[in-house]
Nucleic acid binder design. Structure first.
Lengths: 222, 222
DNA sequence: GTCTATATAAAGATAGAC
DNA sequence: GTCTATCTTTATATAGAC
């Protein structure tokens, strides 16, 4: 996807575009940290610029405003997650690929830890307060859900189980458990066993398989 | 639980204590709204005071600082929830009492809607950023979990099921689903069916009941 | 393109009148 | 106890030098 033909042989020299992109990237990265630590309003442009190694002046020559920067951070994170998903899963992912991917996700989540969680919470709050941004996060959510739904369908076929509810709904539950447990863990570390997250998916799946077959809105006249 | 014997016949006259308490209460209530809408830093003391019908001066004669006010809001909400719980459940609640209580909770949640959710999210973020406050929210979480755990134990006895995992863990999952679904719903209204929350608890319970008995860390030498 | 210096505005907090 | 007026700090954003 490289735009211009050649971009290797040029030693330290960067084109203006590249330099600008690099500065922006550094600012976005620093902003991610500061927004996570202090929240949108708590974070000052000064601290962000400083931590990225720049001055406020440099900041304002790259971004229109703090809001503009926040959007850049949000987009960068969503794009990065989406890209990771697409790359790892491709068009028609195998069960193994998806499971492997989910595992790597949870490892990554562990590594990035508190900051990552705080930042996404901040995203969520900000988006809820500025509803025109909702589609950005909603898209990510839908993508995650349908990826998981596909696993569920696959497993059902494998095991010859007839789903008693839409796989998307079961996927919603699995995602919900994931997010909900994160909240609990950070608030009160130690109360949530390490393997609970994994057990939950199994429990839900078994629950669905064994639950008294789907109760479609039956016609009461029967 | 009335403190002093008589407090009816005094027309509009309030003692200084009562008047002060009333002012504080109004400010706390207004603060809840503004904190929910704008977050801790986004909320200005001026707007809070104004919405409560007072001036900044009045505010500062009742609270030391914005942080102080936030703590008061936090305490008020926690206390109110705890009180509701204790009142509805008492010492040794029946299954019916607990289920009834959970239902009323979810109704209340619906009614209070977005603002309520935003405010608790704000509490959560603020507490994570000021860890010394964690015990306050953690206590509420533990209380909710053990209340649900008690239901689970009861149902297990009723149905003659031997739990394959600690009831507290299953309770954690149920709470997690609840919180996680709230996040999804507000971000992308309509994707989560109304009855999914209820189904989830059933699914988890059935899952536990039918799951291949607890797998204690077995000795691999077997 | 990035820096320093500065303009401008907003918000937290206080003082003193009533 | 509450108000108005004011102090002080902090932060966003801009201007102009390099």
């Amino acid at each position: 996807m490289g735009e211009s033909g050649v971009d290797k042989g040029d030693r330290k020299r960067l084109t203006r575009q590249e330099s600008r992109a690099l500065t922006r990237a550094r600012l976005v990265e620093a902003a991610g940290l500061v927004f996570a630590e202090r929240g949108f309003y708590g974070a000052s442009v000064e601290e962000i610029a400083e931590r990225a190694g720049f001055s406020r002046g440099a900041f304002y020559s790259n971004f229109d405003s703090k809001e503009d920067l926040f959007l850049a951070v949000l987009d960068a994170h969503i794009e990065s997650e989406m890209a990771l998903t697409t790359e790892a899963l491709g068009e028609d992912p195998s069960q193994e690929a998806v499971l492997e991917f989910l595992h790597s996700q949870s490892v990554r989540r562990r590594r990035q830890g508190r900051g990552w969680t705080l930042l996404w919470a901040e995203f969520w709050l900000h988006v809820l307060r500025q509803p025109e941004l909702a589609p950005k996060l909603a898209a990510r959510q839908r993508k995650a859900r349908s990826a998981i739904a596909r696993i569920i369908e696959g497993r059902c076929r494998q095991l010859g189980i007839v789903p008693t509810m839409p796989p998307e709904d079961l996927a919603s539950l699995i995602l919900a458990v994931d997010d909900g447990l994160v909240l609990q863990e950070h608030l009160d570390p130690g109360v949530v066993p390490d393997d609970l997250r994994a057990s939950a998916s199994v429990l839900l799946f078994i629950g669905m398989a064994f639950s008294p077959a789907a109760q479609p809105p039956t016609d009461p006249s029967t």
